[in-house]
Simulated scan of single mutants.
Amino acid sequence: MILPWIGALLVGLSLGLLGSGGSILTVPVLIYLAGEQEKVAIAESLGIVGTISFAGFIPYALKQKVHWRSVILFGLPGMAGTYGGAVVAEFVSGTFQLLLFAVVMLVAAVMMFRDKNNLKSAGAIEISHAWWKIVLEGLAVGVLTGLVGVGGGFLIVPALVLLGGLPMGLAVGTSLLIIALKSFSGFYKYIDVLDGLGLSINWQLVLVFSLIGAVGSLIGNKVAGKISNERLKKGFAVFLVLMGGYIIFMNI
Protein backbone atom coordinates (compact mmCIF):
# COMPACT_ATOMS: atom_id res chain seq x y z
CA MET A 1 0.00 0.00 0.00
CA ILE A 2 3.05 2.26 0.05
CA LEU A 3 2.74 3.25 -3.64
CA PRO A 4 -0.62 5.01 -3.20
CA TRP A 5 0.82 7.01 -0.30
CA ILE A 6 3.80 8.07 -2.44
CA GLY A 7 1.26 9.14 -5.05
CA ALA A 8 -0.61 11.12 -2.38
CA LEU A 9 2.59 12.98 -1.52
CA LEU A 10 3.16 13.84 -5.20
CA VAL A 11 -0.42 15.11 -5.49
CA GLY A 12 0.17 17.45 -2.57
CA LEU A 13 3.47 18.66 -3.99
CA SER A 14 1.79 19.44 -7.31
CA LEU A 15 -1.01 21.42 -5.69
CA GLY A 16 1.30 23.31 -3.35
CA LEU A 17 3.80 24.14 -6.10
CA LEU A 18 1.51 24.94 -9.02
CA GLY A 19 -1.95 25.36 -7.51
CA SER A 20 -3.15 22.60 -9.81
CA GLY A 21 -2.32 19.20 -11.25
CA GLY A 22 -3.42 17.20 -8.22
CA SER A 23 -6.48 15.68 -9.81
CA ILE A 24 -4.69 14.34 -12.86
CA LEU A 25 -2.41 12.46 -10.48
CA THR A 26 -5.09 11.47 -7.97
CA VAL A 27 -7.41 9.60 -10.33
CA PRO A 28 -4.70 7.32 -11.85
CA VAL A 29 -3.21 6.66 -8.39
CA LEU A 30 -6.60 5.63 -7.01
CA ILE A 31 -7.41 3.44 -10.02
CA TYR A 32 -4.07 1.78 -10.77
CA LEU A 33 -2.36 1.76 -7.38
CA ALA A 34 -5.24 1.63 -4.88
CA GLY A 35 -7.52 -0.55 -7.03
CA GLU A 36 -10.57 1.72 -6.92
CA GLN A 37 -13.39 1.50 -9.45
CA GLU A 38 -13.27 4.28 -12.05
CA LYS A 39 -16.35 6.26 -11.00
CA VAL A 40 -15.48 5.84 -7.31
CA ALA A 41 -11.93 7.09 -7.97
CA ILE A 42 -13.27 10.20 -9.72
CA ALA A 43 -15.55 10.96 -6.78
CA GLU A 44 -12.85 10.29 -4.16
CA SER A 45 -10.46 12.48 -6.13
CA LEU A 46 -12.70 15.50 -5.65
CA GLY A 47 -12.87 14.98 -1.89
CA ILE A 48 -9.12 14.42 -1.63
CA VAL A 49 -8.09 17.31 -3.87
CA GLY A 50 -10.55 19.61 -2.11
CA THR A 51 -9.05 18.79 1.28
CA ILE A 52 -5.43 19.07 0.10
CA SER A 53 -6.15 22.31 -1.75
CA PHE A 54 -7.67 23.89 1.33
CA ALA A 55 -4.63 22.90 3.39
CA GLY A 56 -2.34 24.38 0.73
CA PHE A 57 -4.43 27.55 0.57
CA ILE A 58 -3.84 28.42 4.25
CA PRO A 59 -0.17 29.51 3.90
CA TYR A 60 -1.08 31.68 0.90
CA ALA A 61 -3.89 33.28 2.91
CA LEU A 62 -1.50 34.03 5.78
CA LYS A 63 0.85 35.70 3.27
CA GLN A 64 -2.11 37.63 1.81
CA LYS A 65 -1.57 36.00 -1.59
CA VAL A 66 -5.25 35.43 -2.32
CA HIS A 67 -7.33 37.65 -4.60
CA TRP A 68 -10.73 37.56 -2.89
CA ARG A 69 -12.62 39.29 -5.68
CA SER A 70 -11.66 36.46 -8.02
CA VAL A 71 -12.69 33.89 -5.39
CA ILE A 72 -16.17 35.40 -5.27
CA LEU A 73 -16.66 36.09 -8.97
CA PHE A 74 -14.98 32.89 -10.21
CA GLY A 75 -15.30 30.44 -7.31
CA LEU A 76 -18.96 30.74 -6.30
CA PRO A 77 -20.37 30.30 -9.83
CA GLY A 78 -17.80 27.52 -10.24
CA MET A 79 -19.35 25.65 -7.30
CA ALA A 80 -22.76 25.76 -8.95
CA GLY A 81 -21.29 24.69 -12.28
CA THR A 82 -19.36 21.81 -10.74
CA TYR A 83 -22.49 20.51 -9.04
CA GLY A 84 -24.30 20.57 -12.39
CA GLY A 85 -21.38 18.92 -14.15
CA ALA A 86 -21.43 16.10 -11.60
CA VAL A 87 -25.10 15.53 -12.42
CA VAL A 88 -24.26 15.14 -16.11
CA ALA A 89 -21.29 12.87 -15.30
CA GLU A 90 -23.71 10.15 -14.18
CA PHE A 91 -24.74 9.64 -17.80
CA VAL A 92 -21.32 9.44 -19.53
CA SER A 93 -18.56 6.83 -19.41
CA GLY A 94 -15.37 7.19 -17.40
CA THR A 95 -13.28 6.87 -20.56
CA PHE A 96 -15.12 9.81 -22.14
CA GLN A 97 -14.54 11.87 -19.00
CA LEU A 98 -10.79 11.19 -18.99
CA LEU A 99 -10.37 11.86 -22.73
CA LEU A 100 -12.27 15.13 -22.43
CA PHE A 101 -10.08 16.04 -19.47
CA ALA A 102 -6.90 15.36 -21.45
CA VAL A 103 -8.04 17.49 -24.40
CA VAL A 104 -8.81 20.44 -22.15
CA MET A 105 -5.39 20.09 -20.50
CA LEU A 106 -3.68 20.39 -23.88
CA VAL A 107 -5.76 23.46 -24.76
CA ALA A 108 -4.79 25.08 -21.46
CA ALA A 109 -1.12 24.31 -22.13
CA VAL A 110 -1.32 26.03 -25.52
CA MET A 111 -2.83 29.09 -23.83
CA MET A 112 0.09 29.24 -21.41
CA PHE A 113 2.74 28.75 -24.11
CA ARG A 114 1.28 31.41 -26.42
CA ASP A 115 1.20 34.14 -23.76
CA LYS A 116 4.32 36.22 -24.37
CA ASN A 117 3.63 38.99 -21.89
CA ASN A 118 5.61 39.28 -18.68
CA LEU A 119 3.63 38.32 -15.60
CA LYS A 120 2.58 41.29 -13.54
CA SER A 121 3.93 41.97 -10.11
CA ALA A 122 1.72 41.25 -7.11
CA GLY A 123 1.07 44.96 -6.65
CA ALA A 124 -0.06 45.60 -10.22
CA ILE A 125 -3.22 43.61 -10.72
CA GLU A 126 -5.32 44.36 -13.75
CA ILE A 127 -8.69 42.67 -14.18
CA SER A 128 -9.20 42.73 -17.95
CA HIS A 129 -12.71 41.24 -17.95
CA ALA A 130 -16.01 42.71 -16.80
CA TRP A 131 -17.33 41.08 -13.63
CA TRP A 132 -20.13 39.24 -15.43
CA LYS A 133 -17.67 37.69 -17.87
CA ILE A 134 -15.59 36.36 -14.98
CA VAL A 135 -18.77 34.90 -13.47
CA LEU A 136 -19.59 33.16 -16.76
CA GLU A 137 -16.02 31.85 -17.03
CA GLY A 138 -16.25 30.44 -13.50
CA LEU A 139 -19.57 28.77 -14.28
CA ALA A 140 -18.27 27.25 -17.52
CA VAL A 141 -15.09 25.94 -15.90
CA GLY A 142 -17.19 24.55 -13.04
CA VAL A 143 -19.46 22.61 -15.41
CA LEU A 144 -16.49 21.14 -17.24
CA THR A 145 -14.51 20.22 -14.15
CA GLY A 146 -17.59 18.68 -12.55
CA LEU A 147 -18.14 16.63 -15.69
CA VAL A 148 -14.60 15.25 -15.77
CA GLY A 149 -14.46 14.89 -11.99
CA VAL A 150 -11.38 16.97 -11.19
CA GLY A 151 -10.55 20.09 -9.21
CA GLY A 152 -9.84 22.09 -12.35
CA GLY A 153 -6.68 23.95 -11.35
CA PHE A 154 -5.25 23.34 -14.82
CA LEU A 155 -8.03 25.58 -16.12
CA ILE A 156 -8.34 27.99 -13.21
CA VAL A 157 -4.67 29.06 -13.09
CA PRO A 158 -4.47 29.96 -16.81
CA ALA A 159 -7.81 31.77 -16.56
CA LEU A 160 -6.67 33.81 -13.55
CA VAL A 161 -3.30 34.62 -15.17
CA LEU A 162 -4.25 35.18 -18.80
CA LEU A 163 -7.85 36.38 -18.46
CA GLY A 164 -8.04 37.74 -14.93
CA GLY A 165 -4.68 39.54 -15.02
CA LEU A 166 -3.23 38.03 -11.83
CA PRO A 167 0.49 37.29 -11.34
CA MET A 168 1.32 33.58 -11.10
CA GLY A 169 2.01 33.62 -7.35
CA LEU A 170 -1.32 35.27 -6.57
CA ALA A 171 -3.16 33.05 -9.05
CA VAL A 172 -1.86 29.90 -7.34
CA GLY A 173 -3.09 30.92 -3.89
CA THR A 174 -6.45 32.03 -5.28
CA SER A 175 -6.74 28.86 -7.35
CA LEU A 176 -6.25 26.62 -4.32
CA LEU A 177 -9.27 28.07 -2.53
CA ILE A 178 -11.40 27.98 -5.68
CA ILE A 179 -10.40 24.33 -6.24
CA ALA A 180 -11.37 23.46 -2.67
CA LEU A 181 -14.79 25.12 -2.95
CA LYS A 182 -15.57 23.56 -6.33
CA SER A 183 -14.24 20.13 -5.37
CA PHE A 184 -16.36 19.92 -2.23
CA SER A 185 -19.42 20.95 -4.23
CA GLY A 186 -18.82 18.23 -6.81
CA PHE A 187 -17.90 15.65 -4.15
CA TYR A 188 -21.20 16.26 -2.37
CA LYS A 189 -23.15 15.52 -5.55
CA TYR A 190 -20.99 12.52 -6.50
CA ILE A 191 -21.99 10.80 -3.25
CA ASP A 192 -25.56 10.74 -4.56
CA VAL A 193 -24.37 9.66 -8.01
CA LEU A 194 -22.46 6.69 -6.55
CA ASP A 195 -25.38 5.73 -4.35
CA GLY A 196 -27.57 5.53 -7.44
CA LEU A 197 -25.01 3.21 -9.05
CA GLY A 198 -24.74 0.98 -5.97
CA LEU A 199 -21.22 2.24 -5.16
CA SER A 200 -19.75 3.98 -2.12
CA ILE A 201 -16.80 6.08 -0.96
CA ASN A 202 -13.82 4.46 0.79
CA TRP A 203 -13.66 7.05 3.58
CA GLN A 204 -10.52 5.63 5.20
CA LEU A 205 -8.62 5.87 1.93
CA VAL A 206 -9.84 9.43 1.39
CA LEU A 207 -8.77 10.48 4.90
CA VAL A 208 -5.26 9.00 4.83
CA PHE A 209 -4.65 10.14 1.24
CA SER A 210 -5.78 13.66 2.14
CA LEU A 211 -3.54 13.89 5.22
CA ILE A 212 -0.43 12.77 3.33
CA GLY A 213 -1.29 15.05 0.42
CA ALA A 214 -1.77 18.00 2.78
CA VAL A 215 1.79 17.53 4.04
CA GLY A 216 3.00 17.45 0.45
CA SER A 217 1.15 20.67 -0.37
CA LEU A 218 2.88 22.48 2.50
CA ILE A 219 6.25 21.27 1.21
CA GLY A 220 5.34 22.39 -2.30
CA ASN A 221 4.35 25.79 -0.98
CA LYS A 222 7.80 26.25 0.56
CA VAL A 223 9.57 25.22 -2.66
CA ALA A 224 7.37 27.46 -4.82
CA GLY A 225 8.69 30.55 -3.06
CA LYS A 226 12.17 29.82 -4.44
CA ILE A 227 11.13 29.54 -8.09
CA SER A 228 10.44 32.49 -10.41
CA ASN A 229 6.95 33.18 -11.71
CA GLU A 230 8.04 32.67 -15.30
CA ARG A 231 9.60 29.29 -14.56
CA LEU A 232 6.46 28.22 -12.71
CA LYS A 233 4.34 29.25 -15.67
CA LYS A 234 6.43 27.40 -18.27
CA GLY A 235 6.84 24.36 -16.03
CA PHE A 236 3.09 24.27 -15.55
CA ALA A 237 2.50 24.29 -19.32
CA VAL A 238 4.99 21.45 -19.88
CA PHE A 239 3.28 19.49 -17.10
CA LEU A 240 -0.08 19.86 -18.87
CA VAL A 241 1.31 18.57 -22.18
CA LEU A 242 2.95 15.52 -20.61
CA MET A 243 -0.03 14.54 -18.47
CA GLY A 244 -2.56 15.22 -21.20
CA GLY A 245 -0.63 13.07 -23.67
CA TYR A 246 -0.32 10.29 -21.11
CA ILE A 247 -4.06 10.21 -20.42
CA ILE A 248 -4.88 10.09 -24.16
CA PHE A 249 -2.37 7.26 -24.64
CA MET A 250 -3.86 5.26 -21.77
CA ASN A 251 -7.44 5.59 -23.04
CA ILE A 252 -7.10 5.06 -26.80
Rank of each mutant, 00 (worst) to 15 (best):
L73E: 03
F74M: 14
G75V: 03
G75W: 03
A80Q: 08
G84N: 08
G84R: 10
G84W: 06
A86T: 07
V87T: 09
A89G: 13
A89L: 13
S93P: 09
T95H: 13
L98T: 15
L100V: 10
V104L: 12
M105Q: 06
M105C: 04
L106C: 03
V107M: 11
A108T: 15
A108E: 06
A109W: 02
V110N: 12
V110Y: 15
D115P: 11
K116D: 14
K116E: 02
N117R: 13
K120T: 15
K120N: 11
S121K: 11
I125T: 12
I125S: 06
I125K: 10
E126L: 03
E126G: 13
E126I: 14
I127Y: 14
I127C: 05
S128R: 15
W132T: 00
W132P: 06
I134A: 00
E137V: 13
G138E: 01
A140P: 01
V150K: 06
V150W: 03
G153N: 02
L155F: 05
I156N: 13
P158F: 07
L160H: 08
L160Q: 07
L163R: 15
L166E: 01
P167L: 00
P167K: 12
M168C: 01
L170P: 02
V172P: 04
S175A: 05
L177R: 04
K182S: 14
K182R: 14
F187A: 14
Y188T: 15
I191V: 08
V193C: 10
V193Q: 08
V193T: 13
L194P: 14
D195I: 13
D195S: 12
G196L: 07
G196C: 00
L199C: 02
L199D: 13
I201P: 09
W203D: 00
Q204A: 14
Q204F: 03
L205C: 05
L207C: 12
S210P: 00
L211D: 06
G213C: 14
V215M: 13
